[in-house]
Nucleic acid binder design. Structure first.
Lengths: 194, 194
DNA sequence: TCAGGTGTTGACCGATCGGTCAGATTTCGG
DNA sequence: CCGAAATCTGACCGATCGGTCAACACCTGA
């Protein structure tokens, strides 16, 4: 059984991702969920609280992936870096709507605490690269890899229909691993079991 | 001498890019330009017309880069593909604010004709890849390269301060060329031809 | 000097937004 | 069966938005 609050979170996430937060009214969400506007405001104190509640699961997982301890493993180019890439790609696949909001509306939602926190997490990666990665070339490789993956899966216009998610996942991991020189010898090899 | 209309276009472009179209009121633009709200509506029939006018130069240049004739050159991996990458990177650098709007607010502004046109242009690249590029791997390479470059230069949170634009440009062209195997002999790990 | 375009403005309007509130309805333990 | 808590709703409110309009200042050519 899905509660009304859960349904509202689900609908709101889709609506915010597809039409944009500011362009989506509480009334629209209420209509699509089959309840009144007042009901939405009963379950969530404000529109912003609804957004935060809808994004919470995604940002929690992002927290886990980008933990500072795990981040330290990125310096080396070995299996840990490959694992990080896999987790990042899976995060994008599992939370496409939320990721789309982070990618496509980051500037618009700067004043929303939870979005600010997500941005800060990503800045953390950027800051880590600034400190630990020497060449600008390598920084750009990281930026292109992570940004490219995010834009490809969560960005709007360029995103292809993506019929086969598994194939896309495999291709993405291959390309990203290749770009970041993860296990160079195996770059084009099929992703091993997981 | 810069006319009032030019100044309004300039201010509006920055404001729309940094705060978002729907979150930016005509009053804010008027204030920042030192004129009244009515003056803005005198020069531009509506807020949407102002957005279109501000984005026009950028989309015109994008038109030139993504022309179908030039697109056909992408199939080969030679100098023409490298030239395309250079033009695309320069487009992002020269029109960062406009590109930022396309990248970060594409979904939100789907109903604005000029943005829809920009999205269509990019879809055109996607469609071209669908027809002419065989392997999913190669498609993903293109997607990551173009999306990554766009997100790195025009996307919000991951975008580093970018102190040295020339160095960034050079690094980006190198990395993108490497990723798309522009000079196959020099690529790090040439994926088997398809 | 004067007539007429050009640019600018404050006052105003209807619509819509997020949010409040008192009350109706449903649910459920005792 | 009952009463209280939880849930839901229509009516309403103040604020803000995009946009209109009549009036005012300014410049310029005849």
């Amino acid at each position: 059984m899905t509660t009304t609050a859960d349904e509202l979170r689900r609908v709101a996430l889709e609506e915010f991702a597809s039409a944009g937060y500011h362009a989506t009214s509480i009334q629209q969400i209420a209509d699509r969920a089959g309840v009144s506007k007042a009901t939405v405001l009963y379950h969530f104190a404000s529109k912003e609280v609804l957004l935060e509640s809808a994004l919470a699961p995604a940002i929690d997982q992002l927290d886990g992936i980008l933990g500072k301890a795990r981040l330290a493993a990125l310096r080396t180019g070995g299996e840990q870096r490959a694992e990080f890439l896999r987790q990042f790609v899976d995060f994008l696949l599992q939370h496409r709507s939320a990721a789309s909001i982070f990618v496509n509306q980051a500037t618009t939602l700067e004043d929303v605490p939870i979005v600010r926190r997500a941005n800060a997490e990503i800045q953390l990666v950027s800051g880590y690269l600034e400190e630990n990665v020497g060449s600008l070339d390598e920084k750009v490789r990281f930026g292109v890899a992570l940004g490219g993956a995010a834009y490809l899966l969560a960005g709007a216009p360029l995103a292809m229909p993506v019929q086969d998610l598994d194939a896309m996942r495999a291709a993405l991991i291959t390309v990203l691993g290749d770009l970041l020189a993860v296990t160079p010898a195996l770059a084009s090899a099929p992703t091993t079991s997981d």
